[in-house]
Amino acid sequence: MALSSNFWIWIAAILTLAIYSFLYKDNPFYKFAEYLLVGISIGYGISVYWHNTIITKVFNPLVYDKNFLVLIPLLLGLLMFSRFFKNVAYLSRIPIAFVVGAGTGLSVPSSFEFLFKQVYATMPTKLDIGIIIIVIGVISTLIYFFFSLEHKGFVGRVSRVGITFIMVAFGAAFGYTIMARVSLFIGRIQFLLSDWLGIIK
């Protein structure tokens, strides 16, 4: 195994190092990589969009399936361009209103399902110390999110317990995630040492 002779591997390796140089400080290499990534990813995004949306979701249904329903989003999409003209700019509110309405409408039932699932999962089907702690934890955390009561007296004390639970949870989640994040770096190191430099195999 030796240094890679593949032109593309070299590009990937140099770009990788350019991003890491940001850890030292902002510098021309990082800037180059950053602007390149933003530029290429938009170019890529537009191409994917052209392929997945314009062709598959608008052109094909319109031309082959004679599905004229897609004219509605097409029109709504065109209304977004009213932003370019000051006197009709307000028209762009219509597609936004549509999109937000659909989004909130969809989120209501899914919030419900989530609510039910969480309560269902918390139900004490068997009695042990863990279940008792979970019930106490859920209730005290919920009390912490009480907004219409001042957190004083009993409510205050329970919400303190809630904060304690939240802090333990954050500490645990933080510690638990480190392994996954270190793995990401290991992945890049393997690429650099093995695919590019060929030091390890």
């Binding site: 969480q118 863990g130 859920v138 955390t141 809630g162 639970f165 645990a172």
Partner: peptide
């Protein structure tokens, strides 16, 4: 992870859906 972490996560989750 299964007990105190889960409890707080559920509490936060319930708050978020509300």
């Amino acid at each position: 992870m299964q007990v105190p972490q889960m409890a707080a996560k559920r509490g936060i989750g319930l708050g978020i859906s509300l």
